[in-house]
């Protein structure tokens, strides 16, 4: 069992939790993820690691309540326990001291998993620019954290309540127009956002890394549920990824597979609501 040490609701339905998992914290590296099962009857869901504290032995997760499993997770109080917590899984981000200028694009709660990678890239001495996108100002997460590890932060909101009115690609455009020499873009967020970023950087020839979060079961390569077409090959996001060359990812297929259980997800959410877990 894994204790919930802290829990904050950053904005309605978006939670920041620190989970006690000393061995996972000890081994976690930027870019990796964990799989958890909230309770005995729960589903195994993957969540990207938003931060880790090796001394305290904790792993930070940022998640949005969207269905039965995240609802069950959000219902666990501070001091309560998560049934199963498995990690660190996946390949760590490939980073080095001579990357040049790296732009980190985070959309929605995707800003959270971007942060530890941006921090590591910054600590290695590279120039780091953050582009944080959200629908509106109130659901912008991890702005303070990102400012602490970025040389520059650009904010975009769909409604213009903060920063540039528009999407993360507008932020990217601003950089390109002023002649910023970008060596690499790393984008994490909803499929449609990552696809837009990839389409924006493709004609410019900027290397673009995306971190995929498809449906998974075991998270260790055993089931193949998370498979995604990357170039000519079928890859398993859990063991080959989660990061891939965005210009090779079949986002259409990825997003279609993400909808596979939409009907069942609604049924499960109703069930969890009815038995009162989603208080």
């Amino acid at each position: 069992m894994f204790k919930v040490l802290t829990k904050k609701e950053l904005s309605p339905g978006i939670f920041d939790c620190d989970i006690e998992a000393p061995q996972v914290a000890k081994k976690a590296r930027p870019g990796q993820f964990i799989v958890l099962r909230a309770d005995e009857k729960g589903e195994r869901i993957p969540l990207t690691i938003a931060d880790f504290d090796r001394e305290r032995g904790s792993v930070k997760l940022i998640f949005q309540v969207v269905g039965a499993s995240t609802m069950a997770l959000a219902s666990i109080p501070v001091g309560g326990e998560i049934q199963d917590f498995i990690g660190p899984l996946g390949q760590p981000s490939q980073i080095s001291a001579d990357m040049g200028t790296v732009v980190f694009v985070g959309g929605g709660i995707g800003v959270a998993p971007v942060y530890p990678i941006a921090r590591a890239v910054h600590e290695l001495g590279n120039k780091v620019i953050g582009i944080l996108g959200a629908k509106t100002k109130d659901i912008l997460v991890f702005e303070k954290e990102m400012r602490s590890v970025c040389d520059e932060v650009i904010i975009t909101t769909d409604d213009g309540s903060c920063g540039i009115k528009g999407f993360v690609t507008n932020g990217l455009q601003t950089l390109v127009e002023r002649g910023e020499k970008i060596a690499q873009v790393t984008a994490i967020g909803p499929g449609i956002m990552m696809k837009s970023v990839v389409e924006a950087t493709r004609p410019l020839g900027i290397k673009t890394i995306v971190s995929l979060n498809p449906v998974m079961v075991d998270g260790t390569g055993m089931c193949g549920c998370c498979r995604v077409q990357v170039g000519d090959e079928t890859k398993f996001a859990c063991v080959d990824g989660p990061e891939f060359d965005g210009h090779l990812v079949d986002f259409g297929g990825l997003m279609s597979r993400g909808r596979m259980y939409r009907e069942q997800e609604a049924v499960a959410k109703d069930h969890v609501c009815n038995i009162g877990l989603g208080r």
Binding site: K41, G42, R44, V217, M260, Y261, V267, H271, V272
Partner: peptide, 15 residues
């Protein structure tokens, strides 16, 4: 493993 045959009591779906 996930007991999807007992869905939705067990949350893991199967089709």
């Amino acid at each position: 493993l996930m007991k999807a045959y007992l869905f939705p009591e067990y949350v893991t779906p199967i089709r």
